[in-house]
């Protein structure tokens, strides 16, 4: 299964395609590129990944989550390459009979993906400087 996309993620297309007759709740999380980071204006983002390992890790996260919350289905897609402001960087969709499970499972997937999937974000600022995201780097 390929969870990485080099091209634009069209959220409407995904929502349109993903249904399950037993699912009364469909929760969609959409992470978009924002135009600032710590008050510094961002022009665009760029993501890179260890493709095969990222697909493997995300697949394991999806499988674990579906089992844990007894979901009818779950889906995830993450961008690689250049992502412009307000474009979708990541989408997570969870389907369950009732909303509680779908909300919890959705948060679980995005949190786990951020910590465990080998994907890296680089910020390109409007002043011409660039910076790799240091969100998870220990300082000592």
């Amino acid at each position: 299964m390929n969870y990485l996309s080099e091209t634009n993620i069209n959220i409407i297309d995904y929502i349109d395609k993903i249904h399950h007759p037993k699912a009364g709740a469909v929760v969609v999380f959409c992470g978009e590129a924002r135009n600032h980071n710590h008050d510094k204006p961002v022009k665009y983002l760029e993501y890179e990944a260890h493709t095969s390992l990222a697909n493997k890790v995300i697949n394991e996260i999806i499988k674990e989550t579906k089992k844990k919350w007894k979901l009818h289905d779950a889906f995830c897609a993450h961008r690689t390459g250049k992502v412009n402001i307000s474009e979708t960087a990541v989408i997570v969709i969870t389907l369950s009979s009732h909303r509680k499970e779908a909300y919890e499972a959705n948060q679980f997937i995005i949190n786990k993906l951020k910590h465990e999937a080998p994907i890296w974000k680089k910020e390109y600022y409007t002043d011409g400087t660039t910076e790799w995201s240091k969100e998870l780097i220990k300082t000592e």
Partner: peptide, 29 residues
């Protein structure tokens, strides 16, 4: 990582011509 698996433990013995992936903290999402 080696062979699409994360290596836990720095004593993992390497082989000649092996490909090793060194991955800083992740920042996806």
């Amino acid at each position: 990582a080696v062979n699409n698996n994360i290596i836990y433990g720095k004593n993992y013995e390497l082989n000649d011509k092996q490909e090793v992936f060194v991955m800083p903290p992740f920042s996806g999402g």
